[in-house]
């Protein structure tokens, strides 16, 4: 959520459905999305490949990915 607020400070991501496409809902461009993924990757200590980006299109997808790949 913090990562999303950073790129879309004027929106309230908490009000988003977990399966909504955040790029559409929060009007993110490719740079915003990269910043979002970068923040998650760095704060979660988790490698995220370009192939994994589609998972992060929704909050639920991103959370699942991080839960599955987070360092034990």
């Amino acid at each position: 959520m913090t990562a999303l607020r950073q790129v879309a400070p004027d929106m309230d991501p908490a009000a988003l459905p977990r399966d909504a496409d955040i790029r559409d809902a929060l009007e993110l461009d490719s740079l915003d999305f990269l910043t979002y993924v970068q923040t998650l990757s760095e704060s979660g200590g988790c490698r995220i490949e370009e192939d994994d980006y589609p998972a992060f299109a929704t909050i639920a997808g991103g959370a699942d990915f991080l839960a599955a790949h987070a360092r034990a």
Binding site: L31, L34, V37, Q38, S41, E42, E49, E50
Partner: peptide, 12 residues
């Protein structure tokens, strides 16, 4: 590939 997200390039 192999670069941290912060150093990746966008098509833009």
């Amino acid at each position: 590939h192999d670069l941290p997200v912060s150093r990746r390039l966008l098509p833009a």
